[in-house]
Design a protein around this nucleic acid. Structure first.
Lengths: 256, 256
DNA sequence: CGGGTTCTTGATTCCCATCAACAGTAGTGG
DNA sequence: CCACTACTGTTGATGGGAATCAAGAACCCG
């Protein structure tokens, strides 16, 4: 967790769609996250409208692409990789408010400036929409608005769960909840089914700590303790295997 | 904080609107929170549509009217009083996720069941809409949907701030942030301007503790310490006067 | 194989929770 | 009006869980 580098895009726009001729009409049609993202509500016949305003951008690991407090110019849709979203205090303390996986929509905010920062964990691809053009889309496709409301509601529920975790759970309960959430998240997006209880967490211990309101050391100790209890196995790199989901669930539900 | 009583409404529907004849057309028109609530986006000419589906309900202090996990049948709009929203763990630990003041819309959730509980702090009046009828309104008034998205976005920002508070701030920083937020909230809703730094907090120390992820004792001690520092004055009942906003702001920004 | 980052483990500290006692405050009924 | 009770808030003493400080170990990548 070195100081965050400049928060510019490492913007390699791979595909700036040009005319309306439908040259790139398959850009969105063939997008891997379309079925699960907000874009799914746009009819195939209108998909070119979407492709016209979307710009694909690649962000390399560790690079920030949204700076907290900066003017909110764009919306984003994650198409691959994992993003961490965070807020920070002046002295450097950092709280990760969430991880955004493929399909996740970023940038919902009424304000003119971003309320949080965003940084790529691994190599991330995002679809970028200018705020202005997004507004036009919303005017033309009411379904899109409803879908965004749905998205926001789900995030709100997640945020409330996280508040309960941060305010009232012990370190063990937090880590257990986190592992179970990650397990759950791994199931959804049509990914290769995570056979057994095998998890591949893209984020570091530091990220987990900043997400759970703990320190790196406490996260590490807690994982070691869980290993000792036969709840999990800690592999090399970022691999963790859940051995006893039941034990973790007891912990996560609130038994220190 | 005794055990929560049965979460039924103490439902005294004062006004069940009957026909479409506009008998009660002024019900919503004259509503005191209409200018600041989601209802403001409905044109005066369509206001009867709103009045038809709204049922006013009074909830007495300490009474719960949304039970976490119960089937989500209704939406609510707070018209007077203050509501606490919370989530709980099986063993009773409780996290208040927010306080809802007049104008606040409650019940946003995609799920079929409420993700949080709600309880009246003082005497509360709410407008109740059935989920079903709300859906019809959304279909007919796209503006309403956009307004709800706005509302949800704002709540999301507040939730992220609260996560930072709960995960990374010290007790003193939390209480300072809370007092400043309450000050801010008191300014908005066309209320009588809170002259000087005088606050009238409707919630108990226990509620504040459950909101800030602290204990009653720590909240009390911290307020006493702030009094000793000349930051605030603690009056009888629920009155607190902010003497030095500047000192509180330094604290809230992150200097333990 | 180095050099740097990340992770683990141990020793110690400290902030806040817990336990406990008491003081206000409010509501009730004699 | 004044006990009487119940609740809420304040303050003190003590303890514990996680942070901090510190040192290696493991891992990654060129």
């Amino acid at each position: 967790m070195s100081d965050m580098p400049s928060c510019q895009f490492e913007s390699r726009p791979r595909r700036i769609v040009i005319g309306s001729g439908g040259v790139q009409a398959d850009f969105c049609t063939n997008c891997s996250v379309r079925p699960t993202s907000v874009c799914s509500v746009i009819e195939p016949s209108d998909i070119s409208r979407l492709a016209e305003v979307a710009v694909e951008t690649i962000v390399s690991p560790g690079r920030g692409f949204i700076e907290e407090g900066a003017p909110a110019t764009d919306f984003f849709n994650v198409t691959s990789g994992t993003v961490k979203l965070f807020k920070a205090l002046p002295d450097g303390r950092r709280q990760i408010t969430g991880f955004a996986a493929p399909g996740h929509f970023l940038g919902l905010a009424v304000s003119d400036s971003y309320a949080f920062g965003a940084e790529a964990i691994d190599t991330v691809r995002v679809c970028r929409f200018s705020r202005e053009k997004m507004g036009e889309l919303l005017d033309d496709f009411p379904k899109l608005e409803r879908r965004l409301l749905e998205e926001a509601s789900n995030e709100l529920v997640a945020a409330q769960n996280q508040m309960l975790l941060l305010g009232r759970k012990t370190a063990r309960e937090r880590v257990a909840s986190f592992l179970l959430d990650q397990m759950q998240a791994g199931l959804l997006p049509g990914q290769p089914p995570p056979s057994g209880g095998r998890l591949h967490l893209p984020m570091t211990r530091g990220d987990i700590a900043d997400y759970l309101g703990l320190t790196i050391e406490t996260v590490s100790r807690t994982l070691s303790w869980m290993r000792g209890q036969g709840m999990i196995e800690v592999g090399k790199g970022y691999a963790i295997t859940i051995v006893s989901m039941a034990k973790l669930e007891v912990l996560a539900a609130g038994n220190g």
